[in-house]
Structures are given as structure tokens and as C-alpha cells.
């Protein structure tokens, strides 16, 4: 039963200018023996490379999650086996907090693994990867907590779990069932690590900006804040206040048309680029709060239509 009030989307307000109380008074020093942010990435690369994954580089477009990378979305379709791992910068314009919230970022990194078809030892592999970055399952409390994954914009869903370590969500594990509206032939295992959150846990810090990015002699180390704090401030201002919404709406329409045109020519990959573009433009418009509740559903539907068309073009191209 749906409670009346909850049946309706609430308007989420984006506020800023508030200094977080616990930021100033926390002694937020990373554990010295823990892996640095970049070493966690390098360790995961080595780990998954040994499992036969191709180590890809980030896709060169703005996207909301590593799942959007064609190496996951499109490769999850069709009958060819596939193993890949990569870092994907993920942009969630609405999650920006002007660098003032210790846990929220409008730009963060996901580590993404896809293995198709899903191997019988997927859970064991995953746990071994956590062990590799310093989380010992004999000392920590690892759990697989129900999490049904669904992406309305990608027309995709799967079943799996949130991976919990001591009550902290350190990853999402999904068995893909459908992508782009198409039931998959070979279900993939997809694993997404939220790298910042994972690193915060490994290093024992409570503020993302305190993360130790690299290992360097005293005084020369770089923190996450050194790298990204200014970007968080500037992009938050851009996302919430200054992005030109007329231009974004125009670009959305352009991307939508271009995607459809390219699908018509059977060019699944370039078409899919424009689908990704449209999705990000929608996220920006959403952050600027110029999309009404009713329009919101329609925008999501339009992106899904593109994603489906791209998925169909991809499958058709594979079969040819």
C-alpha cells in the first residue's frame, strides 16, 4: 500500500552556504598504513586484470554512473563473453554541496567491473578484491543486503545486493537482467565500487576532502581536497545557479535528434554518445530545478527511448 503523501514526489531543495558542524572539529587523519586513493585504484586494476578483465580508461563524456559507459551498457547485450574494469568519473549535478558537505560530491569516481556471463564465484571474487585493498572479511562484517537495481533512463534492471562492510555500503553488485528494454542473453555480473566512500572507510577519515590521494614524503602529499575542492565549489555554482537552462534545453533537443538520426544509420556507438549527452543535460536541468514533476517523467522517458533505440541498433550490428 502506498501512503498518500509518499505517492507524490517531493521537491528536493538544494541548499548551501551552511558550514557543516562536524567538519571543523574532527581530527581527520588518514590511517598511515592504509592504501592511498590512487593505490586503491591501482590495486583494483591489478586484481581485476588478473581475472581476465580488460582495463579500460574512463569514457570521455559526462555521465551519471559507470553503468552508462558503453563497455557496460552495450556490451551487456548480445551473446559475446566480455570482461572489463575501469574507473568512471560520475557526475550527479544535484548532489553538489559547494564542497561543504563531507560526504556529498557532484563529481566522484566509480570503479566498475563487468563480467559476462556472470561467473559462479562472483561473490568470492568480490570479497577477495576487498581483501586486496585492506578490508579483511574475518575482521569486518561483510553482508549482502537486498538491492534491486533499476535505471529508468537506461531501461535496465537487475537483481543483486548492496555490499555492506560494518554497516557501510561499499559497493553494489548486480546481475543484469535487462538493458535498453532488451532482456539480456547472457546475464552479466556488474560490480560498482564508490571509490571515495570506500577509500574513506579504508583510510578511516570522515571527510572526503581529507582523503590521502597519493603516498609522498611528509609535506608533499596531496589530499582529495587539494585536487577537487575548488572543482566542487565551482561546479556546484554552475549546476545550481549559472548553467544556461535555455541552452541546455536546446542541446537536449539537438542530442535527441542526432541520436535518432545516427540510430537510423545503424551507428549504435556514436548514437549512444548522444544518448549519454541527453541524459547528462537532463541531470543538469534537474539540478537547475526548471523541470516540473510532470515534465521530469517525460524527459526520463525520452532518454529511455534513445537508450532502447541504441541498444537495438547495437544488437542488430552484432548479429550482422
Amino acid at each position: 500500500m502506498v501512503h498518500c503523501e509518499n505517492a507524490f514526489p517531493y521537491v528536493k531543495i538544494h541548499q548551501h552556504g551552511f558550514k557543516h558542524a562536524s567538519m571543523a572539529d574532527t581530527n581527520d587523519t588518514p590511517i598511515a598504513s592504509a592504501l592511498s586513493f590512487q593505490d586503491i585504484i591501482l590495486t583494483l586494476h591489478r586484481f581485476w586484470a588478473r581475472q581476465g578483465c580488460v582495463i579500460l580508461q574512463p569514457y570521455d563524456m559526462e555521465m551519471g554512473a559507470g553503468t552508462f559507459h558503453p563497455a557496460t551498457t552495450l556490451r551487456a547485450l548480445g551473446g559475446e563473453p566480455w570482461r572489463a574494469a575501469y574507473v568512471q568519473p560520475s557526475r550527479r549535478p544535484s548532489d553538489g554541496r559547494y564542497g561543504e558537505n563531507p560526504n556529498r560530491l557532484q563529481h566522484y569516481y566509480q570503479y566498475q567491473v563487468i563480467i559476462k556471463p556472470s561467473p559462479a564465484d562472483a561473490q568470492d571474487l568480490l570479497l577477495a578484491s576487498y581483501r586486496a585493498i585492506g578490508l579483511d572479511p574475518k575482521r569486518h562484517d561483510f553482508r549482502f543486503v537486498e538491492d534491486d537495481w533499476e535505471s529508468p533512463t537506461l531501461g535496465a534492471w537487475g537483481l543483486g545486493w548492496e555490499i555492506w562492510c560494518d554497516g557501510m555500503e561499499v559497493g553494489q553488485f548486480t546481475y543484469f537482467q535487462q538493458v535498453g528494454g532488451i532482456a539480456v542473453d547472457l546475464p552479466s555480473f556488474e560490480m560498482t565500487y564508490g571509490l571515495e566512500r570506500l577509500a574513506m572507510y579504508v583510510q578511516g577519515v570522515e571527510n572526503v576532502y581529507s582523503l590521502r590521494f597519493n603516498d609522498a614524503p611528509a609535506g608533499q602529499g596531496v589530499t582529495y581536497g587539494d585536487v577537487f575542492l575548488r572543482a566542487e565549489r565551482e561546479y556546484s555554482a554552475h549546476n545550481f545557479e549559472f548553467a544556461d537552462t535555455d541552452m541546455l534545453i536546446r542541446h537536449f533537443g539537438d542530442a535527441e535528434r542526432e541520436c535518432a538520426a545516427l540510430v537510423g544509420r545503424g551507428l549504435a556507438l556514436p548514437a549512444y554518445d548522444y544518448c549519454i549527452k541527453a541524459s547528462h543535460l537532463f541531470n543538469l536541468l534537474d539540478a537547475r530545478r526548471v523541470i516540473s514533476v510532470a515534465e521530469r517523467a517525460s524527459y526520463i522517458g525520452r532518454v529511455r527511448t534513445l537508450a532502447k533505440a541504441c541498444a537495438e541498433a547495437w544488437v542488430a550490428g552484432e548479429a550482422a
Binding site: H20, A21, S22, N103, K138, D141, D166, G167, M168, E206
Partner: peptide, 30 residues
């Protein structure tokens, strides 16, 4: 309720859960 009797008596598990809750509640305090 944890799903394991850890070799350190649960110290790391407790510390981890406390930290997670601190972050959760910091968000709520905000």
C-alpha cells in the same frame, strides 16, 4: 547484529558502525 565473531572481538566492526552512524547523523544534523 553482526554476522561474524571477529578475531578482535568486534572492535573494528563496532568502530566501523559508529563511524557510519556518525556520517549518517551528520547528514541529518545538516
Amino acid at each position: 547484529v553482526a554476522n561474524i565473531a571477529a578475531d578482535d572481538g568486534g572492535a573494528a566492526i563496532i568502530a566501523g558502525n559508529e563511524r557510519v552512524l556518525r556520517a549518517r547523523l551528520a547528514d541529518a544534523e545538516h
